[in-house]
Amino acid sequence: MTDEPLLRVSALSKFYGSRVGCENVTFDLWPGEVLAVVGESGSGKTTLLNCLSTRLLPSSGTASYRMRDGQFRELYRMSEAERRFLMRTDWGFVHQNPADGLRMTVSAGANVGERLMAVGDRHYGKIRATAVDWLSRVEIDEDRIDDEPRAFSGGMRQRLQIARNLVTGPRLVFMDEPTGGLDVSVQARLLDLLRGLVTDLGLAAIVVTHDLAVARLLSQRMMVMKDGRVVESGLTDRVLDDPRAPYTQLLVSSILQV
């Protein structure tokens, strides 16, 4: 790890009229670190994720990202062109519902290859070879490369979405309930895969989940949110084994059976 964080978030708030989305969130994310944001639905974790990934503009606060040249850039002051470029090169976003992150009527190979073509790759054979490589890394058979994701199971679609995001070698990936909506056995396999990829590639990730087991398996650090605010944060093992905030204690005692 370097001595500078990858992302610096300071006093981030988002209001919908008088309703609080998230309020006064501050943290640093380090290269290669996986941060889990947990909480019930309506706790503000998804709003926070959408603000961080610049899909939503916050009402106040700042977030700066260390670009590949080492310079910090203020996310909300970037032009749309710069943000979109960042999103399809150095970042990834894994949606809970794969249909939101995939082109459902375009083949698996093209889904993986799209980002490469967007940044200027113009060699069909090389794009296809990269797609084949990535499909195998997410355990999808090579002979499915020309099939549309419509013909894939939920777990396969999610793995395809992951491959599509990772093909440009991003340094930061946002994940919104990546295992939500999958069967338990499928979830376990996907979590294994994700954990392996994150470690191998040295990815930093921010994972939003309501599932403490997912946080336990994937993250080194976690933040617990309630009513838009962070009620507790710390190393994942510490928070789960020795919760300090009353809300976290309640959450852990009622749910965690790992």
């Binding site: 967007a118 113009r122 490369i145």
Partner: peptide
Amino acid sequence: HALEEYGLMHVKLYEDIAR
């Protein structure tokens, strides 16, 4: 067009060749 995001155009051509 404004952001010169033309990746999708090549996706279409890629699909043609694949199919």
